[in-house]
Amino acid sequence: MNQLFSPRISVEQVEEGFQLAPKFDGNGLIPVVTTDVNTGEVLMHAYMNEEALVKTIETGEAHYYSRSRQQLWHKGATSGLVQKVRQLLIDDDQDCVWMRVEVAGSGASCHVGYRSCFYRSIPVGNNAVSEEKGVSLQFTEIEKTFDPQVVYGDAPNPTQL
């Protein structure tokens, strides 16, 4: 284990102590929710492995682990939309991270070009499901913040279908 992280010794130590003892899942990952430090808007959800969490702590910039590319990912290294970490929080049992960030440039965080990766809503309630269409998503962001083709060119899509 990395020297920044303590071993997980007891529930009390993990939940009430001062030691960082993250619990990575069976694949060596921990989920991360990233929000805008000023607005609280959820920008994205991703994962970190041990190396990504260490680099984020050391540099003050968001690093993630790309499951589709199987590699470390410095957010903004290609696009210039670097996420500066303003606050890094961990939940009570230390198995989930919340990052509050300030994003360089246009403030966008989504590789599709929208500000947030959460740019569509799912209807709920009695009229949410149609027999013909199933569930029809509704866009909450109409205009893209940047053109991904200009920023990334013909780079492969970082998500898996």
Rank of each mutant, 00 (worst) to 15 (best):
M1Q: 13
M1E: 07
R8S: 14
S10L: 12
E12C: 10
E15C: 14
F18V: 06
Q19F: 07
Q19A: 11
Q19E: 11
Q19W: 01
L20A: 04
L20Y: 06
L20M: 07
K23R: 14
F24N: 01
F24D: 02
D25T: 00
D25M: 01
I30H: 02
V32Y: 00
T35H: 02
V37F: 09
T39K: 00
T39A: 05
G40C: 05
L43W: 02
M44D: 03
M44S: 13
M44Y: 00
M44C: 07
H45C: 13
M48V: 04
A52T: 10
L53F: 05
V54F: 08
V54G: 03
K55N: 11
I57D: 08
I57Y: 08
T59A: 10
G60W: 07
G60C: 11
A62E: 14
A62Q: 12
H63W: 13
H63K: 03
S66F: 11
S66Q: 14
S66T: 08
S68I: 04
S68H: 07
Q71W: 08
Q71D: 15
L72V: 07
W73N: 09
H74C: 06
G76E: 09
G76M: 08
S79P: 14
L81I: 03
L81N: 12
L81Y: 05
V85D: 04
L88W: 02
L88H: 06
L88F: 03
L89E: 02
L89Y: 07
I90A: 11
D91K: 01
D91N: 13
Q94Y: 06
D95H: 03
M99V: 03
M99R: 01
V101L: 07
E102P: 10
A108H: 06
H111P: 15
H111T: 05
V112F: 06
P123N: 12
V124A: 10
G125N: 13
G125C: 10
N126M: 10
N127D: 14
S130A: 14
G134S: 09
G134P: 09
V135G: 09
V135A: 09
S136F: 04
S136D: 11
F139G: 08
E141G: 04
I142P: 04
K144R: 15
K144T: 01
F146S: 05
F146D: 03
D147T: 15
Q149D: 15
Y152P: 07
G153W: 10
G153L: 09
G153V: 06
G153C: 11
D154V: 03
